[in-house]
Design a protein around this nucleic acid. Structure first.
Lengths: 186, 186, 186, 186
DNA sequence: TATGAATGAGTGTTCATTCAT
DNA sequence: GATGAATGAACACTCATTCAT
C-alpha cells in the first residue's frame, strides 16, 4: 500500500490524491483500506514512517565505528547515494510532512534526529580518535549540514541535477565540506 | 491580502485554507476576492511572488561590489538575518510551491536562481579580486549551499532554533563554510 | 440594448448570459443597465416584446381586407418570409419564453394570439366573400397551423433548411395546406 | 431519477433546477446522484434520451405496413394520443434540448429524424400501394408537419387545449391534413 | 446622473468516511 | 472478512443586484 501511495503522492501530492486512488493502487477496495487505517492522514504517517525505515535500513551499511576521515568521507558518499536512490520518497516527505497531525509530526521529526545522530556519531568517533578537534555545537551543525546537503540533491534537483552528475555532486560537496573556502585562498 | 494569506498558509497550509478564509483575512468578501484573482492558485502565486520580492528587496542592501572575504561574510550575515526575519514566509513557500501550476512554477524557480546568482556574484568578485581561487562549478555549488543554509534556519527551525541563537548559527555556519573540516584537524 | 441581448441569447441562451454581458453589449455600465430594468428577467420581457413588435410591424403590410384565396396565399407567403427574416429572434423566444415570470408570460402569449388572429381574419374574409366554407373551429386551427408552420421554418431549421430553400418551403407548404392529402389521390 | 427530473424541469426549467433537487426527487443523496452522472447536463441527456425511448416504444404499436389511407389516419390518431400522454415530457424536451452539449445534441436530433421517418414510411407505403401520388419532397414535409402537429398539442396547449378536446383536435387536424383548404371551396 | 466595486447567497461537484450486505 | 454504494459536509467559484461615489 505504501509503495503505491508514495507514487501517487509524488505525482499529485497528498491532498490531490484520493483515498480511492490509494486503495486502488494498493489493490484493495476502499472498504478494506479503512480496515488498515482510520484516517487518510494515517496513510501519510505510514508513508513517512516507511520512507524513514528505508533510509535507515540503507544507512545501516555505513561504518560508524572506524572513526577516520576516510570512513567519514565514505559515510557521506554512501548517504548521498542513498538520497539519490530515494529522492522521490524524500521529496514527498519534505513536501507533505507538514500535513501530518500534531501527534504524528514529532514522531517523524524524532526519526530525522536519529539519522542526523548517525553523522554526529561518525564525526565524534573522528574526534575521539584524535583525527579532528570539533566542539559539540560544531559537530551537531556539521551533521545537520551533511544531512540537508543529501536531501538537497533531491529537493533541489531542478537546479542541481542539471549542472552536476551525482559523482560530481558528491565530490565537490565533500571537498567544500572538508576544505571550506579557506582551502581556496590565493 | 497576501499578508493574510501567508499567515493562513503558515497555519494550515494552502490546501486546508479556504478561499473564504483568505477573503476574510484580507478584509473583503469572497466576491471581492475574486475581483483580484481568477483562481485560488493565483493567491499562492501572488504569495510566492511577494515573498521573493520581499527577500530580494531586503537583499538589495547587500554589497556585491567590494569583492573581499569580509564583504562576503557580511553578505552571508545579512542574508541569514533576512531569512530569520522572513522565516514564516520562506517556510510557506518551501512547503506550498509544489502546488503552483506548471505555468507558474518555472517563473518562481527562476527567481530563486536569481537570488542564488547574487551569491555567485559575491564569490566571483572575490576571485576576480585575487582573494579566492575557485572554479565555476565550486562557486555555483557554494552559492547554493549558502542559499540553502539560510532557508534551513527557517525550515528546520524545530531542530536548529532549539540549539542555537541566530548569532550562534551565523557564526558557526560561517566558520564551517570558511574553515571546512580540514580547519579542525588535530 | 434589446438588439445586443437578442444576439447574446441566441448565442448562449438566457441563463448563460450574464447581466454584465448584456450591459456591455448595450454599451452601458452595469449600473446604468439597472436604471432601465429591475431584474434580469425584465431584459427577457423586453426582448420578447420587441420581437413581437418587429413581427407585427412587418406583418402590417399583409392585406387582410381583400378576402380572396390569392390574397390568403400572398399573406402566407409574406408571413413565411418574415419568419425567415426573424428566425433567430423567433428561435430565442421559443426557447426562452418559459423563463418569463408568471406575470409577463400571459402578456406575451396574448400577443401571439393577436398574430394568430390576423390569419383568422384573413381566412374569415374569404368565408364572408363566399370563397370558402369553413366553420369557426376549423378556421382557428388552420390559423394556428399556418402560424406554427412559419415558426417551424426557424425552430426546425436544422432539418428543414438542409432540404428546402425558402421558396420551395413556401410553395410546398402552401400546396399541402390547400390541396391536402386528398389532392393527391391516385 | 429521470421521472423526477422531468417533473422538476417541467416546473422550473433545467437551469433553475438544482442538482440537489434532482437528487432529492430521485430519492437519493447528492453524492449518490453523482455516482450515476458526471455532470448536471448528463441528467438532461438522460431525460431527453428516455423521453425519445418512451415515445418510440409507444409508437411501435403503429402499423406501418398496410399502406392504406385508413391505416395512415390510424397512425396519426395513435401518434397524437401518444403525444397527449407524454406532453409534459415533450414540452420539456422542446424547451431544454438547446442546453445539451454540442456532443449530445446531434444524437438527440438524430432520434427525432428517425421518428419523422416513421411517418415518411407510412406515407410511402400508401404511395407504393397506389393510394397516393406524392413526390419525395412532399412526403418528407408532410411527415414533418404531422410530427410537429403532434408536438404542437403539447407545446401550445395553453392555446389549443382551451378550445379543443383531444378528440376534436385529432379529428379536425386529420381532416385539414387530408382535405386541405381546397376541400372547403364553396 | 452614471459608474463599477463590493456583496454573499447559491451552484455544481468532490471525496473522506461509514456500514449494510 | 471484504466490499462498494451511499452519504453529506465542504469547497471553489459565479453572478444578479446594490449603493457609495
Amino acid at each position: 500500500m505504501v509503495r503505491g501511495a508514495v507514487s501517487l503522492f509524488k505525482l499529485k501530492g497528498f491532498h490531490r490524491t484520493t483515498t480511492r486512488e490509494i486503495a486502488k493502487a494498493a489493490g484493495f477496495s476502499i472498504g478494506t483500506l479503512y480496515e488498515y487505517i482510520r484516517t487518510k492522514e494515517d496513510v501519510l504517517y505510514l508513508v513517512c514512517d516507511s520512507i524513514y525505515e528505508q533510509v535507515r535500513s540503507q544507512l545501516q551499511a555505513m561504518d560508524t565505528e572506524q572513526g577516520t576521515l576516510v570512513s567519514l568521507k565514505l559515510g557521506i558518499d554512501h548517504y548521498f547515494r542513498v538520497m539519490d536512490d530515494l529522492q522521490d520518497e524524500v521529496l514527498v516527505m519534505y513536501q507533505e510532512a507538514k500535513s501530518l497531525s500534531k501527534d504524528a509530526l514529532p514522531y517523524v521529526l524524532q526519526k530525522e534526529l536519529e539519522m542526523v545522530g548517525m553523522f554526529e556519531t561518525l564525526i565524534k568517533r573522528c574526534c575521539e580518535n584524535g583525527e579532528l578537534a570539533l566542539d559539540e555545537t560544531r559537530i551537531h551543525l556539521l551533521a545537520q549540514n551533511i544531512f540537508v546537503q543529501g536531501q538537497m540533491w533531491g529537493f533541489r534537483r531542478w537546479a542541481l541535477q542539471k549542472k552536476y552528475t551525482l559523482e560530481e555532486y558528491i565530490e565537490i560537496q565533500t571537498d567544500l565540506l572538508f576544505s571550506g573556502i579557506n582551502g581556496y585562498l590565493e
